[in-house]
């Protein structure tokens, strides 16, 4: 049945929760909403398959803690993390804790749907997922050596000045490389660049 494909939406903000359920239903997906991580965990025994889309910052148990708890319970549900803050360290932590993807609010519907499809496909064919990884890898291939060096350091959270020092070039030149990296990777923000690097890294 559809139980396999159920998307569990967890957000403490009722409007975000309901609007996302509306969007996903309109896109033909089965959805269940939960107003907290704990409320979701109570329904876990009934769950088999599907994926989780959760907000990171919530009162009570937050998204990162939920990921850890699922790990402890040996429940292998793919998790997509949403954040209204978009800070890079938080996103990196979520990805390291095993999140499939992280999405900044407000998001483009296609970005959310492709992340969810990749999550749902995790147990199955992994075709969407590998297609996504392949697209990112293809972009990385187009970077020059210098650009790749700059990107690795940006993803590690280093500021322009430090990168300039490490590579022995001027901060001004780093900025130009950085601009090129962002354009070639089609990244809108630094956190998006980090996200792509982590997805690509996780695939290797």
């Amino acid at each position: 049945m559809v139980a396999e494909g159920v998307v569990h939406v967890i957000d403490d903000d009722a409007d975000v929760r309901q609007s996302l359920a509306f969007l996903l239903s309109a896109a033909g997906l089965a959805v269940r909403v939960h107003d907290s991580a704990l409320a979701f965990l109570r329904t876990v025994p009934e769950i088999n398959g599907g994926c989780v889309v959760t907000d990171i910052r919530m009162p009570g148990m937050d998204g990162l803690e939920l990921q850890r708890r699922l790990g402890e319970l040996k429940i292998r549900l793919p998790v997509v993390v949403m954040t209204g803050h978009g800070d890079v360290p938080l996103a990196v932590e979520a990805m390291k804790a095993g999140a499939v993807d992280f999405i900044e609010k407000p998001f483009d519907d296609e970005a959310m749907l492709s992340a969810i499809r990749a999550a749902l496909a995790r147990h199955a064919q992994d075709s969407d997922r590998s297609a996504r990884t392949a697209a990112i890898q293809e972009r990385i291939m187009r970077l020059s050596d210098r650009e790749r060096e700059v990107m690795d350091r940006l993803v590690a959270g280093k500021p322009n000045k430090l990168i300039a020092y490490e590579l022995g070039i001027s901060p001004r030149t780093v900025e130009v490389y950085r601009a090129n990296v962002m354009t070639k990777m089609q990244a809108d923000s630094l956190s998006e660049l980090v996200r792509m690097a982590l997805i690509e890294g996780g695939a290797q």
Partner: peptide
């Protein structure tokens, strides 16, 4: 940023959902 992003997310979700319907 955080407070406004929540309603913006809801707005965009409802609009995209309606578009699909």
């Amino acid at each position: 940023a955080h407070e406004i992003n929540q309603p913006l997310t809801a707005i965009s979700n409802y609009l995209r959902g309606s578009q699909r319907l």
